[in-house]
Design a protein around this nucleic acid. Structure first.
Lengths: 219, 219
DNA sequence: GGCGGAATCCGTGGCAGCACCCATCCCGGA
DNA sequence: TCCGGGATGGGTGCTGCCACGGATTCCGCC
């Protein structure tokens, strides 16, 4: 009998060493084949244009275009392509954002290699994959929020707010940001206040860590 | 003729997926064998105690004990063991700190898999390994500093200062830090000022990014 | 056509971050 | 022995962060 064709995978991560390792893991499975590698989100989109891709495995934090941004664009341009996001961080905020960005799965880099392979297969079977660690963490978080009567998924930042977060996390002052964006200092402060409220944070250091987790800037 | 025995490697990285990939890369070389894996610096030290290790490949940023801290301890306890530090970041500051911590090599995760293998071999031959990207960057930096008549290697933080950096980067206020360390707020501010001067930085957001790069905290 | 949300701007005010000056104590190395 | 550096504490003052109130415009959606 004929076996089903191997899943054609696009792999994107900004670290060549990690890319190579993950590729070895995936290629050792007969039903998974990495057909293209990208070092950032923009390159991933370009490669997705010229290659026939079944599945894109994208690191969340990449220069130029983050994995989340690339996922949004990719799912818009070719909805048939499945997307799996790789993340360093176990954070429900990003998990929900990943789903919103069109990803079918979200896998932590801290998990074992078997889980990644299983996630690829689950996503190709059109089953959403949730890694077990996230499942418990998400359920705990969900139950806590429901118990406190909060609306659950939490807030996402607008494009403008994301822009401001990026600049704040780069260490720019409000005045500098105002000059760069050609808006008033007060508006920058208003944005910052809204962002801090949305993310339930207190100051710029926490925003900096958020921006790094989200892949908006590099440490 | 008998071939030389394979190098016994301890591999430490907090991401199981990365660990697995790097292990595949190393194990595919006949002269390199990963005999133990650790998920953080403390576990790495414990494993180095019970295994016969020729070479430790340590990620710089790990929870509990960072790769730099583990390297310091490991080179003190068993100077014969070679140490190779893996880093996400191309930063001369960390490069020098790595050497000071007793490492024989410093490899970026952005480099190709061949370079890691070559670095392992070079280190085992007692040749210090410097990846080409760093070489040019370090030389450029070096020449700039010499041209400006500065003392070159730059400053390293004291243990106390490192402690303060960690708390600042976690988003604590000066008052909170003072309470935690049972010192005056003024002393915290004095430490912060010294740290900012040493690292040639401006504010807490940059310190936050520094702490993440150094593996003192997780994003 | 109203309604909500995003983006823009303004004022007031407190407190913290940060700069620059100062001092003391202790310890280890020249 | 003295010197230097680290850790500690203090004073003064400016600037910027951040909270709190308000406002307008525009746009898309029901």
């Amino acid at each position: 009998m004929t076996r089903p064709p191997s899943t054609r995978i696009l792999l994107a991560d900004d670290h060549a060493l990690v890319r190579r390792g993950v590729r070895l893991i995936l290629d050792s499975e007969p039903d998974l084949t990495v057909v293209a590698e990208a070092g950032d989100g923009a390159e991933a989109l370009a490669l997705a244009r010229v290659h026939a891709i079944d599945l894109a495995v994208l690191d969340v934090a990449m220069p130029r275009l983050t994995g989340l941004q690339a996922a949004r664009e990719l799912s818009r341009r070719s909805p048939a392509t499945r997307i799996l996001l790789l993340s360093m961080y176990d954070n429900d905020q990003y998990f929900f954002e990943a789903l919103r960005a069109g990803a079918s799965g979200y896998v932590l880099k801290s998990v074992a290699d078997r889980d990644l392979v299983e996630a690829c297969r689950a996503v190709m079977r059109e089953e959403p994959f949730i890694y077990p660690e996230a499942l418990t963490a998400l359920m705990r978080e969900y139950l806590q929020r429901v118990a406190r009567g909060e609306r659950l998924p939490g807030s996402i930042l607008s494009a403008r707010e994301e822009e401001v977060v990026k600049l704040i996390a780069e260490g720019r002052s409000s005045q500098e940001i105002a000059d760069l964006l050609v808006i008033s200092v007060k508006t920058v402060e208003r944005h910052r206040a809204n962002i801090l409220a949305k993310l339930e944070m207190r100051d710029r250091t926490q925003l900096t860590r958020y921006a790094i987790r989200a892949g908006l800037i590099e440490p």
